[in-house]
């Protein structure tokens, strides 16, 4: 059953020269209890899609959609403040920089107390005394802190990035959300700390049945964590499918490029050998190309690719390419 269903999401940026479209006609859905990945290069519009879903986009963006259903409630007709209020009770978000997404002037204890919803208050009268304090302690123990007192009295600047991300997860847990949006929370950590955070997200998904949208630009870090992967390039979903299919036989050349960019550490890999990566950058959003946006970076491009944009096909998987691989 679909938790989120968005039809024809369009995002465009207001500039002095008029509207610049970034995403056009995006269909996006997340099933209940599922981890969905949004994978793409930097500047492809992954973060904008996330912010549009959560309703926290900045004012110079214009967002429209035909249909938006959350948990079988239609919120298409609601205006932005109403939608934000509705979503704020159901969606939690984690940002890339854990330290910056916490208030630097408040201790962790103050922030977590403020963050707890009143609906979590216990019914029994004798449990109501200091319930917030107890609740916060339980939450911090759940994410793996042993000495909670030291964490609670600290300011975010005193904690490391990993600890801040853990506090973020604990705060998200306290709200009892239906959906967690993780916007690339682990990209600058060591593998060890990455694993701690990823395990927490996985256990949140398994034990608390929270659906997760995971945004990343590196397939290698998190490939097997996700159930379904959306590959995003130049504001479009170029390929969609279950993880196994995307990793084993990708249809779109862009997916192949992303997979090739992950270095293989097997015994056969030679030291100091060059990586497989095409140079260049995606085209500017202000001057969109006529044909396929992948253009010259594509290994199997032909004349047709430069003339007309590819159509989305749903035969044998969801992809959008003139000359798909592995079909």
């Amino acid at each position: 059953m679909a938790l989120i269903e968005i039809k024809n999401l369009s995002i465009s940026l207001k500039t002095p020269n008029g509207l610049v479209p970034i995403c056009k006609n995006l269909d996006f859905s997340v099933n209940e209890g599922e981890i969905v990945g949004l994978i793409g290069t930097s500047g492809a519009g992954k973060t904008l899609i996330c912010k549009a879903i959560a309703g926290i986009h900045s004012r110079d963006l214009e967002i429209s959609f035909d249909r938006y259903r959350f948990d079988n409630i239609d919120i298409t007709g609601k205006d932005l403040p109403q939608r934000r209020k509705f979503l704020s009770e159901r969606v939690a978000i984690m940002l890339q920089n854990g330290t910056r997404s916490l208030d630097p002037l408040m201790t962790i204890r103050e922030q977590m107390t403020e963050n707890l919803p009143n609906s979590a208050r216990p019914r029994k009268l004798w449990k109501r005394f200091f319930w917030k304090k107890r609740e916060i302690d339980i939450l911090l123990h759940k994410v793996g802190f042993k000495d909670t007192k030291a964490i609670l009295n600290a300011y975010p600047g005193e904690l490391s990035d990993v600890q801040c991300q853990k506090v973020n997860i604990a705060m998200a847990l306290g709200r009892k959300p239906r959906l967690l949006i993780a916007d690339d929370p682990v990209s600058t950590m060591t593998a060890l700390s990455q694993l701690q955070i990823l395990r927490l997200i996985d256990s949140l998904n398994q034990n608390n049945h929270v659906s997760v949208i995971y945004v990343s630009n590196d397939l290698g870090q998190i490939a097997r964590l996700m159930d379904r992967i959306n590959m995003i390039y130049y504001g479009e979903i170029v390929e969609q499918g279950p993880t196994e299919q995307i990793l084993k036989n990708p249809h779109h050349p862009f997916t192949k490029i992303m997979l090739d960019a992950i270095p293989d550490m097997g015994a056969g890999s030679r030291r100091k050998s060059f990586f497989k990566a095409p140079g260049g950058d995606h085209p500017d959003f202000q001057h969109p190309p006529v044909g396929c946006p992948l253009g010259s970076r594509c290994p199997c491009a032909d004349r047709e690719c430069n003339i007309k944009p590819p159509q989305t096909r749903v035969k044998n998987g969801f992809y959008c390419c003139h000359f798909p691989l592995n079909t």
Binding site: S42, I257, P278
Partner: peptide, 17 residues
């Protein structure tokens, strides 16, 4: 480190060179 995987490899190739 903050770049995406493809561009990062492009930079690494430059460093190797």
């Amino acid at each position: 480190e903050k770049l995406d995987a493809v561009l990062r490899m492009d930079f690494y190739n430059m460093f190797l060179d």
